[in-house]
Design a protein around this nucleic acid. Structure first.
Lengths: 294, 294
DNA sequence: CGAATTTTGGACTATGAGTATAAAATAGGT
DNA sequence: ACCTATTTTATACTCATAGTCCAAAATTCG
């Protein structure tokens, strides 16, 4: 079993446990028992439970971003309905997994690394929406887009929380997001008129400088694909194997045939659905999609 | 030392420690050492650190509400500036005390009691603002007031968080709250036009039913005043003693002389400023103010 | 003063994080 | 297939802390 696979096994196991029992109630003992590994191995890959949690976060981000990418494929990027669906993606993921409470606020952590990780997670989300808002509402609202994105998350988060408190049920995500967008749209004229926001371009700039982007290079991805190919065994579908080999070849060309690759990505992701390789396939698809955009 | 005083001593000590070292980093050992009590005593009053934290929360609520009451005294209740100052009160308290992180989100607690306590804390705050919004913007916006209050907190919380992430400094509370109000005011026309909100009166009703209000009766308060009077020692100012006796007498009358009492309350609070009796004096002032309103 | 209650101090249990390490298993190159 | 590296396992150990228990001392209060 390669190094990468083992790490992934830990991540998958702890995610499942966090969902079932909650973060605090899951001990490292539980995790190693569930992942069938020894304590030493755990501490080989993570220095603490928190670090393990951050890895999960990253995994979720890959999944969410990939799904968003797939949603936008061949759609009009100004379509509000697509935006709504895209926004909902991680909400659904989190909700299904009872992870909301874990990072719906800085969770009172002594651990600075963890705090930083959560902040960054939130920032990625806000930044993405900032970009999408300028897509949808036009380049002219760019100076206000960041403020709008922040406000949007504030509104929806608080509305959802109150709804939950009252009904003990998650809110209807569609309706929630629609309302949130409605409110943000109602605010835009005011912002344009007064031309004054709290979080101007400087703030965004500052935050962007702080956020360390993960490095995704072609060489990197090819390497990971190679490792991935080796793990594939008798149980893997022919489709999965064929596509993996194909993608490796394609990526090694000097000029990426973007449309060819794009067309296969969705099938690629689908080929590993519900297999033990799903999470790595998702990560790879996301990374390849990222390469195509740049 | 009376029962009440000891409990208060624990609360004061742990609050100070939580501020200095954070909630998780403060052990019960620390608390009992700092409060000069034994472990047995601690567990006599609280069954856990969480319960102790909830008591602190209550204490903060008393302080905040009393200050809000004092701010409104003899002012026009429709004055927006007064509202701003009132909103800021607990923000300042929390910020000064680094407690923000403690309950800016449900903090991923296994402890259901604690979760409930935090939810209730938030709800009290929202409910108060709902009421104030209808004061300020007129009875006609009542159907939207609750949604507005929730949105207001969502917006300001998220804006503040982003500001903090960027500058590592707390935002200017005045500016922040002003912006928040500006946005909410901009939303009101839309709400009135579409006449559709996510959190309607039903939700508020539901939440109200769930929130258990603390029972504050005249008899109750008089009793506490009596206990308080007994604790006062040689170090207590003459003013403090005299006012305590006076308030006791006044409360025992059949008809409360509201204006007389109201006029003394502020001095009462002031008389114990920076003394070891301050926190109980605040609690008493708050409770008396509450009686006057009802 | 004397009974009732509270407080103390310390011992004790239990849990869980994290370290350490020698022996076993496994990968990868030749 | 063999040898060497590295990884993994199993287990024992330390340390910190929550929470329980209890008998003796201190205190409150009638």
């Amino acid at each position: 079993m390669t190094v990468n696979t083992r790490k992934r096994k830990i991540i998958d196991a702890s995610l499942q446990l966090f969902i079932e029992k909650g973060f605090h109630h899951t001990s490292i003992q539980d995790i190693i028992a569930h992942a069938n590994i020894s304590k030493g191995t755990f501490y080989n890959y993570f220095t603490s439970k928190n670090e393990c949690f951050l890895a999960i976060l990253e995994q979720l981000r890959y999944t969410a971003q990939l799904q968003r990418y797939e949603l936008l494929a061949n759609q009009n990027e100004q379509d509000l309905d697509v935006l709504i669906e895209q926004i909902i993606v991680p909400m659904k993921l989190h909700e299904e997994q009872n992870l909301i409470t874990l990072f719906e606020g800085i969770f009172q952590s002594s651990d600075l690394e963890l705090k930083k990780g959560l902040r960054q997670h939130r920032f990625h989300e806000i930044q993405w929406l900032t970009e999408r808002f300028t897509n949808v509402f036009g380049e002219e609202i760019r100076p206000y887009a960041f403020e709008c994105a922040v406000i949007f998350f504030g509104i929806t988060h608080y509305l959802a929380m109150s709804w939950r408190s009252a009904y003990h049920l998650p809110a209807d995500l569609h309706r929630l997001v629609q309302k949130g967008l409605e409110y943000v749209q109602a605010l835009l004229p005011t912002m344009q008129k007064t031309n004054d926001v709290l979080l101007n371009a400087d703030v965004l700039q500052l935050l962007q400088n702080k956020a360390t982007k993960p490095v995704i290079t072609k060489a990197n991805v090819i390497e990971q694909l190679e490792g991935f190919a080796k793990q594939l065994d008798i149980k893997t579908s022919a489709t999965g194997k064929e596509l993996t080999a194909f993608l490796m070849e394609e990526l090694m060309r000097d000029e990426l045939r973007k449309h060819v690759i794009k067309a296969t990505l969705q099938s690629y992701h689908a080929a590993f659905k519900s297999t033990s390789h799903e999470s790595e396939a998702v990560e790879l698809s996301y990374k390849i999609a990222f390469l195509l955009k740049n």
